[in-house]
Amino acid sequence: MTLLAAQNLSVRLGGTDILSGITLALEPGEIVTIVGPNGSGKSTLLRALLGLISPAKGTVTRAKSLSIGYVPQRLHIDRPMPMTARRFLSLPKRCTDAQAMDALTRCGVADAGPRQLADLSGGQLQRVLLARALLNQPDLLILDEPTQGLDQPGEAAFYTLIAEVRRDTGAAVLLVSHDLHVVMAASDRVICLNGHICCEGAPDVVREAPEYRALFGAGTQGALALYRHDHDHSHGPDTPHEHGPNCDHDHTPASAKKAAHV
């Protein structure tokens, strides 16, 4: 049973085409990571899938009674307004102390309940946001660049936590990454987006790549992977190459191409 699907989805904002021809489907229990440069439409795609904006073309379908947990890209906190993590978990739907403690403990911030949100570190706040998203026992967890602003060890720890949540709850995960070259090793699929789906494939865990070892140490296993993709088409003369200096494209014929990981 497909949880969520988009068919030939296009989105226009302010008279500008942001997304075009997006077709994808999310299946129970899988982790799908979306990568792309700034301005590629990643957050817009999430909003369209969540039903927060209407597509110009195409359709979005959701499984009946689908429960979605959402972790936003960032939470703006008004420091003068007191708000503990425990109180935040009960907004907008009240939860019991036991439920709150279970969610915070699962996310590795068991002691965060009485603390002010404004006093939490970036990593702690993201874990509290994840705990809140898990309270409704979602079938699908959607995360919009959840590690933005975290250092590399913080990213690794958060990605590992997401993989553990999928393992323990069975929830599917749709994750947007702000870094084109770093994706979850636990991903079942990686989708490269730049206004349209450029390529899609299953990532391999990087165990020997020098870049991987340089970033996370030779002993790091499975938290992150460096992802190199090969496009099956050109972006065209009017579309600049925005995928960064380490995105190693191979423009050999399509029949010889495949998604690759270094």
Rank of each mutant, 00 (worst) to 15 (best):
M1S: 13
T2P: 15
L3E: 05
L3W: 05
A5G: 11
A5R: 13
Q7D: 15
L13Y: 10
G14D: 02
I18N: 03
L19P: 00
L19I: 01
G21F: 04
T23V: 03
A25N: 01
L26R: 06
S40Y: 07
G41L: 01
K42V: 02
A48H: 05
G51V: 06
L52R: 12
L52D: 13
S54N: 10
A56T: 07
T61C: 09
T61D: 07
A63G: 05
A63E: 13
K64M: 11
K64L: 13
S65I: 11
L66K: 07
S67Q: 15
I68Q: 08
Y70E: 04
Y70V: 11
V71I: 10
P72L: 08
L75D: 08
L75N: 08
I77P: 04
P80E: 10
P82K: 08
M83S: 12
T84P: 01
T84S: 06
R86P: 01
P92E: 00
K93Q: 14
K93N: 14
R94P: 04
D102K: 10
L104Y: 00
T105P: 10
C107I: 01
V109K: 03
R115L: 11
A118D: 07
A118Y: 07
L120G: 05
S121H: 09
G123Y: 02
Q124K: 03
Q124S: 05
R127W: 09
L129W: 03
L129C: 10
A133E: 04
Q137T: 15
D139S: 15
L140N: 01
I142K: 00
P146E: 00
T147C: 06
G149T: 02
D151H: 06
P153M: 01
F158Y: 09
L161E: 04
L161W: 02
L161M: 06
V165M: 04
R166E: 10
T169N: 15
A171D: 02
L174N: 09
L175A: 10
S177T: 00
D179I: 06
L180M: 04
V182T: 09
M184A: 14
A186G: 04
D188Y: 05
V190A: 00
I191D: 01
I191Y: 00
N194P: 03
C199D: 08
P203E: 01
D204C: 13
V205L: 12
R207I: 12
E208V: 09
Y212P: 09
Y212N: 15
L215V: 12
L215P: 08
G217P: 02
Q221Y: 11
A225V: 11
R228Q: 12
H229E: 13
D232V: 14
D232H: 15
H233Y: 07
H235G: 12
H235Y: 08
P237E: 15
D238M: 14
D238T: 13
P240T: 08
C247M: 08
D248S: 14
D250I: 09
A256Y: 14
A256K: 14
A260V: 15
A260T: 14
V262K: 15
